[in-house]
């Protein structure tokens, strides 16, 4: 078996009495695309935040290996410098700055001063931000801000991409563009996508990991998982 890009061993995260992530063993291979689904409060976002160090790991609550390096205890900026990019669930962008300025800051960390300009242009074209490139991000609609944040992640040129609900607030033809874009990203990076929208998940056509009450309920190919009675029950039970 080749070295995993991400591997968690018995990863656990508690908030007081709530166990948000419960002994999760997760493995993501090179260039793999994986969807993470599960009802509200299943612990998907918390899982991401553990991977990026936004929630520090408590002692004795499992391990996180990124390309074989134990990242438990590292600050987020150290982890992302390894080559990890994250789009958070609530768009985390620099609202007072223009789209291009946002992208510039993302590009600057990995590129020299002289290359940032062309890098920003590349991302603007790739994500299709041309019309709004000079607008202030705070003025944009939710869906547009989502795309800006995906652009920010792209500008970092990461080899591990975490996308937390990228399709929220995005509609119609835009969804198709997003699916293509994720495919594009996946050519050079391993990707984990969290989403609720089953239609979107189906379009991505990747393997799925289902979270339920902090633990992994099941894992497998999209068609098998969506046909699984337990998964249906978990979803329908929670949606009702």
């Amino acid at each position: 078996m080749s070295e995993a890009v991400v591997e968690t061993i018995e990863l656990t995260k508690r908030f007081g009495g709530v166990t948000a992530v419960d002994r999760v063993n997760f493995r993501l291979g090179e260039r793999e695309l994986r969807c993470l689904i599960g009802p509200n409060g299943a612990g998907k976002s918390t899982f991401f935040k553990c991977l990026t160090g936004q929630y520090p790991l408590d002692h004795g609550s499992g391990r996180i290996l990124i390309r074989g390096n134990d990242v438990g205890g590292l600050r987020p900026h150290h982890i992302v410098r390894m080559g990890v990019g994250i789009k958070t669930q609530v768009p985390s962008v620099m609202n007072g700055l223009t789209v291009m300025e946002n992208l510039w800051l993302a590009a600057r960390r990995t590129h020299g001063w002289d290359r940032c300009g062309s890098e920003v242009q590349r991302v603007v074209d790739e994500v299709g931000l041309g019309d709004i490139a000079r607008r202030t991000v705070g003025e944009l609609a939710h869906g547009q801000r989502q795309m800006v944040e995906i652009g920010i992640v792209l500008a970092q040129e990461p080899w591990l991409v975490l996308l937390d609900e990228p399709a929220a607030g995005i509609t119609g033809a835009e969804v198709e563009r997003l699916v293509n874009l994720i495919g594009q990203i996946n050519k050079t990076a391993s990707v984990i996508v969290v989403d609720h929208d089953m239609e979107f998940v189906r379009m991505l056509g990747a393997d799925i990991t289902v979270f339920y009450q902090g633990a992994v309920l099941t894992e497998g190919h999209v068609d098998d998982v969506l046909a699984d009675a337990r998964v249906r029950e978990v979803y329908i039970g929670n949606r009702a």
């Binding site: 600050r75 900026h77 992302v80 410098r81 994250i86 620099m94 800051l105 993302a106 960390r109």
Partner: peptide, 8 residues
């Protein structure tokens, strides 16, 4: 938070 997640 975003700047931290960009690696600064």
């Amino acid at each position: 938070a975003r700047c931290e997640l960009l690696g600064y």
